[in-house]
Each structure stands twice: as structure tokens, then as C-alpha cells.
């Protein structure tokens, strides 16, 4: 089974260039990518991930609401007993906040300037078995 990833935009922010480029790169790398589209609540994202049997949630935020919305997804996963689903994110997120988000249980944050290959490598490293599956 290839790695299944739910990519989502949480909150009101409509800037979807980053999430779409990353989603396409992950798909090209052989992962199964489900893109939820815009304006998802943390509940909707977590439900989608559970329903889709995803191992990973990828969140993109450019509106500055990351310190509220990303932890809300982590909390919702805990509440639904699905904390085995890994959360990573990206967007306009300063270093100080990255440290705090990681402390709260987010696996990784990719700030502006991150390479697509960097994200692919990170996921392959975390999920060596799934990631090795043929596309």
C-alpha cells in the first residue's frame, strides 16, 4: 500500500498555490494524495483522514492562524483516538512558532523556500515501507 496523505487548507485562507504544488509533487513521488480543497475545519480534516485511511495529514497556512488551527487538528486527532496519524505543515510560519508546533506534536513544518524533494525525502524516511511501494 502506498502512503496515503490528506492535504488540506484549514481556516479561511484561500492561498492554495503551495498546497497544490506540494500535493502534485507527492503524487508524482508515488504517494496517494487526497486534497480536501479550501476552508476546512480541523474536524473536517481529521474526519477525512480517518475515512480515507490516511497515515499523514499535510496542512498549509498562509494567514497567520497557524498557532490556533494546526494545534486544533492535533487535538482533534487525539479526541478521536487517531493520534497515530502524522501531521506536517507548511506556509508562512516563523521559526519560533515551528519550535512550539513541534512541541505540540507536529512532525515537521516546511517554511518558505523548502524544496519539494525535501518534503518527499522526509516522508520516505518516516514511512520507509509504504514509501517504497510502487506508484
Amino acid at each position: 500500500m502506498p502512503l496515503r496523505i490528506v492535504m488540506a487548507k484549514v481556516g479561511l485562507d484561500g492561498h492554495d498555490r503551495g498546497v497544490k504544488v506540494v500535493a502534485r509533487a507527492l503524487r508524482d513521488a508515488g504517494f496517494e494524495v487526497i486534497y480536501t480543497g479550501l476552508r476546512q475545519t480541523p474536524e473536517m480534516v481529521v474526519d477525512a483522514a480517518i475515512q480515507e485511511d490516511a497515515q499523514v495529514i499535510g496542512l498549509s497556512l498562509h494567514s497567520g492562524a497557524h498557532m490556533t488551527l494546526i494545534p486544533a487538528v492535533v487535538d482533534e486527532l487525539k479526541r478521536k483516538g487517531a493520534e497515530d496519524i502524522m501531521v506536517f505543515g507548511g506556509g508562512i510560519i516563523p521559526e519560533e512558532d515551528i519550535v512550539e508546533l513541534k512541541r505540540l506534536g507536529v512532525a515537521e513544518i516546511f517554511p518558505p523556500g523548502s524544496g519539494l524533494q525535501q518534503i518527499v525525502d522526509f516522508l520516505r524516511e518516516r514511512f520507509p515501507e509504504e514509501a517504497a511501494a510502487p506508484a
Partner: peptide, 10 residues
């Protein structure tokens, strides 16, 4: 409710 965390940010 959906404004939570977004007020005054950008």
C-alpha cells in the same frame, strides 16, 4: 466560530 485564530492576523 470560524473566525477563531484569524482575527487581526493578516
Amino acid at each position: 466560530p470560524t473566525s477563531r485564530g484569524e482575527v487581526g492576523h493578516c
